[in-house]
Design a protein around this nucleic acid. Structure first.
Lengths: 131, 131
DNA sequence: TACACCTATGTGTAGAATGCACCTACCGGG
DNA sequence: CCCGGTAGGTGCATTCTACACATAGGTGTA
């Protein structure tokens, strides 16, 4: 049983870091996974869980993939092999490639922001004097 | 008028990077701002908006500060100077200092994760062979 | 045959984080 | 007298994600 959800008075512990991934981070990862290879959802999900620890739940991955498809960033086809259930294989579209480029720029920005955080955390911060 | 909200069929553009900050990122910043100095909300909010671009909205900052206080990570006192309205000045508690340390570790982890993303984005990724 | 388990793909739902719009109140200048 | 800046706050809607659960084909095994 989770300790943070059964408190009677609504203690929420938002001050503590979540296992939390940045908002919409998942989308960037889905796009980058498909950059060179076409993959199906289960494969992507396992990689993201086991190798990259980006997401914990299969449902979230499948839902996000369908959303990316609705929005035209990826396209899917069915791969019906005789072994096991059919797979929905995804491929990046041109819009998806463009979006991935945008994501890359945005994440570089995040990285600089992180550096700013650490420079506050390690050095002392001098508040800019009010003019 | 925002172009993403009035589409009839629910297009949501989640594939594109949001101005988006990582989830709960704000909490880490509030804590780190108070690491060496006691500040009031308005000051913190202006810094976060103008110098660090972490958050866009004052309400969000004030709300988050109250939440951190409810959870015991920061404490407030009123600073009633005769100039202008009274200010609620915040200071880090011991729990807050500990939480900030946790945040620092989590964000270092996040940075490594970002590096993994970029190594996928720039190099080619070789999918690990299924055993 | 029954069952457990793995692959593969989803839906329903709830909680949390955030942005936008809006409100109160104090104070100084034109 | 009204405007704008300082200071703090609420209500609401949207969005993201985790958890639980459902479905279905296939394989091994008791």
């Amino acid at each position: 049983m989770k300790s943070t959800t059964d408190e009677p008075h609504g203690k929420s512990d938002a001050g503590l870091p979540p296992r939390g991934t940045p908002k919409n981070y998942l989308m960037a990862w889905l796009l980058v996974m498909l950059k060179d290879l076409d993959l199906h959802g289960y494969e992507i999900m396992k990689e993201l869980r086991e190798n990259f620890a980006v997401v914990s739940d299969p449902g979230t991955v499948y839902r996000a993939l369908r959303q990316l498809e609705r929005d035209g960033y990826i396209a899917s086809r069915w791969d019906s092999q005789e072994q096991g259930p059919a797979r929905r294989v995804y491929a990046l579209t041109d819009a998806g490639t463009a979006a991935l480029e945008l994501w890359s720029g945005a994440l570089e920005q995040y990285r600089k922001n992180l550096d700013a955080f650490f420079s506050l955390y390690t050095g002392s911060w001098i508040k800019p004097p009010k003019k």
